[in-house]
Simulated scan of single mutants.
Amino acid sequence: MSLSTHTRPSRKAPVAAALLTFVSLASLAACGGQPAEGAGDSPPPTTRFTENGVTVTLSVSDWHHSKGTLTAVFTPEAKGFHLYSTDLPATGIEGVGRPTAMAVTGVLRAEGGLTAGADVRSISVPGVDAPVPVYPDGPVTTTLPVRADADGDATVLLGYASCSTEKGCTIPVSDRPVHLRVTGDGPTFAAP
């Protein structure tokens, strides 16, 4: 065999493989022998429905030791529609509007108040003396910290109304139930 056609095996490949194995084992040991948090975790339980002009996507995240966060994203189907503030009274202001709301029953308990990831602005509505608090047009994300008292059934109750200053309002939704089951493995939503 001539030297011009002979290739010498690379010593870099076995060294690289050994180094990769060492780094992987060191990472695993640093995590107490378990894969890093989030590695191989399944996506959070999620469900979705559309009713009266709004699509609601509900999910549970950060579930540890019977505690987690419920997140509801309220998305008006049509452009130019807004949702009302979570702080709006249950019957609206002078009968106008309904609050964006999320509550839990069954084995779940709220561990704090409902918060929204959007700034509130006030609008004037013809025939209503007081300003009406709304979110900007488009989707609004709300979160509610929760805990489970035990394994069993729970219900998330959702409420909202969407309106447009030009096209009017959709029919409000009040206490729309979404069912879930809580076990030692965490919560799962019932089939829609």
Rank of each mutant, 00 (worst) to 15 (best):
M1R: 09
M1I: 06
S2C: 01
S2M: 00
S2G: 08
L3Y: 13
S4M: 14
T7G: 00
A16I: 15
T21S: 12
F22M: 05
S24Y: 06
A26F: 07
A29N: 12
P35W: 14
P35T: 01
E37P: 10
G38V: 03
G40Q: 14
D41W: 08
D41A: 15
D41P: 00
S42G: 13
P43A: 13
G53F: 06
S61F: 03
H65M: 11
K67F: 04
K67S: 15
A72L: 08
T75I: 01
A78I: 02
A78N: 07
A78S: 08
S85L: 01
D87Q: 09
L88H: 03
P89L: 06
A90G: 02
E94P: 00
R98I: 08
M102T: 06
A103F: 09
T105H: 13
T105L: 04
G106C: 13
R109S: 15
G112H: 02
A116Q: 05
A118G: 05
A118R: 10
R121A: 12
S124D: 12
S124Y: 04
G127P: 05
D129Q: 15
A130P: 01
A130M: 10
P131Y: 15
G138D: 04
P139C: 04
V140Q: 00
V140L: 09
L144F: 09
L144H: 10
V146K: 09
R147H: 15
D149V: 02
G152P: 00
D153W: 01
A154C: 10
T155S: 03
V156M: 06
L158Q: 07
L158R: 08
S164N: 02
G168W: 06
V173L: 03
S174P: 01
H179N: 06
H179M: 04
V182K: 11
D185S: 15
P187Y: 10
T188Y: 05
A190P: 08
P192E: 10
